[in-house]
């Protein structure tokens, strides 16, 4: 048997492509990815450091930039946990029970992925803006939603809405209900069952969803741009600050702040890869 395997090793299997084809395909793929993905990433850092490290650091260490960093962190700190809790609830309801209309519910949860970010911003302007449904009430009570932090958080929650749910639903469906049923039949309460049985089973999937959700929450541009009003130091998130600096031809500043966001993206990808290597079931899922 071993001899047969050894002799097989030397020969090309029928599903193997010839070496020239492999080299050609990998070469084309590498060239394409270098042009489309690596070049833009490299350009950000080169442009940020065009005048040396000093001006780049100065652009980041500027009150408006720091305010933007702070607002971005606040926005993510609210919207990501919110969507994580929602995702857990939705996945529990969908994966652990049978009910009619399940497919429709999953489609509706995925809906924000199909909506243009600009439309996502617009819908909240139509509701909370001056001429919107609650416009007069909000003005009378001196509550600001649009052109203020609540609007930014709402728009961010909308665009990142499906991330955690769509990660957890297939995972929990795969795991079935037998472990939870066993726990409940032995007298565990619902909450105890969740913490001791379900949570350990889904924690990696949850982290994966939270990771992608966070990257999008910190990086969202279109939706936030519609509701923010671009008030420096007050309602500018990091991506909006990048836009303002770029439009003012402060390229070093724009790319310096952009480089910070690139670092966020790189950290996200490293963590994501680490999760995939540690949890082989995670590979190939995700998306968006």
């Amino acid at each position: 048997m071993a001899a047969v395997q050894n002799s097989m090793k030397g020969r090309r299997r029928a599903v193997d492509d010839p070496l020239w084809a492999k080299v050609l395909i990998v070469g084309v793929v590498m060239a394409f990815l270098a042009l489309v993905l690596i070049l833009p990433l490299a350009a950000v850092f080169v442009e940020a450091l065009r005048k040396g490290l000093g001006p780049a650091l100065e652009a980041v260490n500027n009150p408006d930039a720091l305010a933007a960093v702070k607002l971005t962190l606040i926005t993510a700190a609210i919207s990501v946990p919110f969507n994580a809790v929602f995702g857990l609830c939705a996945a529990w309801a969908i994966a652990k029970y049978e009910f009619p209309g399940k497919a429709l519910l999953i489609t509706l949860i995925d809906l924000p992925f199909s909506v243009s970010p600009v439309v996502a911003g617009l819908i909240y302007v139509l509701i909370f803006g001056l001429q919107g449904w609650f416009g007069e009430y909000l003005v009378d009570n001196d509550i600001k939603v649009i052109f203020a932090v609540p609007g930014i958080v709402l728009a961010t929650v909308f665009v990142t809405f499906p991330f955690v749910a769509r990660e957890l639903i297939p995972l929990m469906q795969e795991q079935g209900t037998s472990e939870e049923e066993a726990a409940v039949s032995m007298g565990a309460s619902g909450l105890y069952t969740f913490w001791r049985v379900t949570a350990p089973n889904v924690r990696w999937g949850l982290m994966y969803g939270v990771l992608l959700c966070n990257a999008r929450a910190m990086g969202e541009f279109g939706a936030v741009s519609v509701v923010s009003g671009h008030i420096r130091g007050l309602t500018n998130t990091m991506p909006l600050h990048v836009e303002i600096l770029y439009n003012e031809y402060d390229f070093v500043g724009a790319f310096a702040v952009a480089a910070l966001l690139c670092l966020l993206a790189v950290v996200t990808l490293v963590l994501k890869t680490a999760l995939e290597v540690g949890q082989p079931g995670m590979r190939g899922r995700g998306g968006h």
């Binding site: 993905l37 833009p40 990433l41 950000v44 992608l212 990257a215 999008r216 910190m218 990086g219 969202e220 541009f221 279109g222 990091m238 991506p239 909006l240 990048v242 836009e243 952009a258 966001l261 690139c262 966020l264 993206a265 790189v266 996200t268 990808l269 994501k272 995700g286 998306g287 968006h288």
Partner: peptide, 10 residues
């Protein structure tokens, strides 16, 4: 996955 992780404005 870079396009998923990199903010679109960047």
């Amino acid at each position: 996955d870079l396009p998923f992780a990199l903010p679109t404005a960047v």
